[in-house]
C-alpha cells in the first residue's frame, strides 16, 4: 500500500519536473532544475527496485551534468569578456 503510494508519487514527481526543465529558458537556472530532475529520477529508480541505476543517475545526472553545464556557461562568459576587452583595445 505504502509502496504503491511511493511509486505513484515518484512517477508524478518525474512527470512534473520534466516539463519544468524544458520550460526554464535561462541556462543557469536550468542547471538547478536539472539537478532536481536528476534527484527525482534517482528516487523513481530506487522505488522501481533498480539501485545500481539509481546510484549512476544520482552521480551523473544530478552532479556531473549540471557541473558541466555551469562550466560551459562560465567559459562562454569569459569569451564575452575577452571579446569586449579586445574591442576596447581596438578602439584605442
Amino acid at each position: 500500500m505504502i509502496e504503491a503510494c511511493l511509486r505513484w508519487s515518484a512517477i508524478a514527481l518525474v512527470a512534473a519536473i520534466g516539463p519544468a526543465v524544458a520550460l526554464t529558458r535561462d541556462p543557469r537556472a536550468q542547471a538547478i532544475t536539472l539537478t532536481l530532475y536528476g534527484l527525482a529520477l534517482t528516487l523513481l529508480f530506487f522505488v522501481l527496485q533498480a539501485p545500481d541505476v539509481a546510484l549512476a543517475q544520482a552521480t551523473v545526472g544530478a552532479v556531473a551534468l549540471p557541473l558541466m553545464v555551469l562550466l560551459t556557461l562560465a567559459r562562454m562568459r569569459r569569451m564575452d569578456r575577452d571579446r569586449d576587452r579586445g574591442d576596447d583595445e581596438e578602439e584605442r
Partner: peptide
C-alpha cells in the same frame, strides 16, 4: 549495488 562506473564518478566529484 554499485560497481566501477558509479564509484568512479563519485571519486571524480
Amino acid at each position: 549495488p554499485g560497481g566501477g562506473f558509479q564509484g568512479g564518478v563519485i571519486i571524480a566529484t
